[in-house]
């Protein structure tokens, strides 16, 4: 548990009440999608009709590429494998131009990926609460420096040197869903040069 603005994540779970399913993952998040597909398959043939359309959009990463396993899953869905995050986001926009009522989104990946997807969905009129989120792979945080507003997409340490302004900034738990970033603040403003030990806390 952290502060109220710090997002929480949980294991994705197939939602039998939804009329349409959009599954999104990056890298190791593909495992979470395979789990959801297994759950859908277990509902059996009778459920097929009721289940409604199911889309899978996947972005392989250096950490993991599960494209083959997603494509060959017994459920026989036609997984879209995107070349980069841009491609995945535009594929998601296309999928969401069809009716969104009753649509359930499932997102799995690192935090930067999860919130990029949530924000595309929000633009399409899907509420954050209708998106299931599971964090997979690296704990690296997307962080925005509050001073110069430069975002570093993957910070693994408690303190880092902002690539924008060069200040030593501390990573807070305060998180903006709109921007999809944590906030970082100058760590030695009150005692210039006194920078505490830098530790890898988000490996």
């Amino acid at each position: 548990m952290g502060i109220k603005s710090k997002p929480e994540y949980r294991e994705l779970e197939f939602d039998g009440n939804a009329t349409r399913h959009v599954l999104l993952a990056a890298g190791p998040g593909g495992d979470a999608l395979l789990r959801v597909l297994d759950q859908a398959a277990r509902l059996g043939r009778d459920a097929d009709a009721a289940r409604g359309p199911l889309d899978v959009l996947y972005l392989p990463s250096a950490e993991a590429d599960l494209s083959m396993r997603l494509r060959s899953h017994a459920l026989g869905v036609d997984a879209v494998v995107a070349p980069d995050r841009r491609g995945l986001e535009s594929a998601l926009r296309r999928v969401l131009t069809k009716a969104v009522m009753g649509t359930r989104l499932y997102v799995a990946g690192n935090e930067a990926f999860v919130w990029a997807c949530v924000n595309v969905a929000r633009e399409a009129g899907i509420d954050d609460d209708e998106v299931q989120r599971e964090r997979c792979g690296s704990l690296a945080r997307p962080v925005q420096c509050v001073h110069c507003k430069t975002t570093d997409p993957a910070v693994t340490t408690n303190i880092y040197v902002c690539p924008g302004c060069g200040l030593h900034v501390f990573v807070r738990d305060h998180f903006s869903r709109r921007l999809g970033v944590y906030q970082s603040v100058c760590v030695d403003a009150e005692a210039p040069g006194e920078v505490p030990a830098i530790e890898e806390v988000y490996p």
Binding site: K4, S5, V146, K149, R172, F175, S176, R178, L179
Partner: peptide, 14 residues
């Protein structure tokens, strides 16, 4: 700029 869009509990998070 950072808190824009947050809900009552989130912006009071700290």
């Amino acid at each position: 700029d950072f808190d824009l869009g947050m809900n009552f509990y989130e912006w009071h998070g700290p």
